[in-house]
Amino acid sequence: MGEIVLARVDDRLIHGQVMTKWSRGLGCNAIFVIDDVISKDPLMKNVYSMSALTSGLTIKVLSVDEVMQNWKETKFGKYKVILLFKNIETVKRVVSEGLNIQKLNIGGISKKENSKFVIPSVALTKSDAEILEELNEKYGVEVTFQMLPDTKKVSLADALKTLD
């Protein structure tokens, strides 16, 4: 049975911070990007696969259906995996379908018109916040906001105060 060493929302998905900071120290051997749009885009799939060419990590770009199938059939097998999501809605979908995410790191969401920064790399909308509250209250997911393993970690409760 595999292990989810980190579940992270980061709209840049695989990039410098993930490859140089998060993927080390957690003892992971795989990164799964979970996104319905990118999983159907051969070009972007290839970009993410190539980006980890020399890292020794297994990279998969999966749709929600594919990741759930993988989870149900093998519990991720031999993989100690970092799950990367482009957005919070996708996390809610996999959690509500039974993927066992206990802790969720929100690391990078770029600024939109109606969003507010809760840490320098994450800007949340009201609807993002509502989904995170639901993940926490209904599914017991511990949500924290942190860009890098050694930068300031903000709790969901504190982040929500920033939005009020």
Partner: peptide, 11 residues
């Protein structure tokens, strides 16, 4: 660096 955002754009 390979794997960073600049390299993702280049790839």
């Amino acid at each position: 660096v390979l794997g960073g955002s600049p390299s993702n754009v280049a790839l």
